[in-house]
Amino acid sequence: MTSLYEKVGGDAAVNAAVDIFYRKVLKDDRIKRFFDDVDMAKQAAKQKAFLTMAMGGPNTYTGADMRKGHAHLVTRGLNDSHFDAVVEDLGATLKELKVPQELINEIAALCETTRKDVLGK
């Protein structure tokens, strides 16, 4: 059976998505303040890791990693509305790249499974 990651286009699809997605995030007034003081190159690498994971690609992230990685943002007010904004920006990115809607839905559902950990609930 072909995995979600393979169906989307694997590493090449992730590379194509990183620039578009990260530019959307940095321009998104709802969430851009969370990215204000981070190094661009490191952040781009993290976005790539995030997109790889979101598209069901190889990753070793655990719920605990997600909690730890976002705890400092939760203290700065990260909540459900910001999580939704990121998922929305991701959806718009994939749409721009002509990924079929049913795959976008699958990806959004995969993101959803991390919500509690990301928001430290």
């Binding site: 490191k42 690498a45 790539k48 890791a49 190889p58 992230y61 990693d65």
Partner: peptide, 10 residues
């Protein structure tokens, strides 16, 4: 280090 998955190359 950052991604711990061989992706980010940090």
């Amino acid at each position: 280090s950052s991604c711990h998955a061989g992706v980010c190359q940090s």
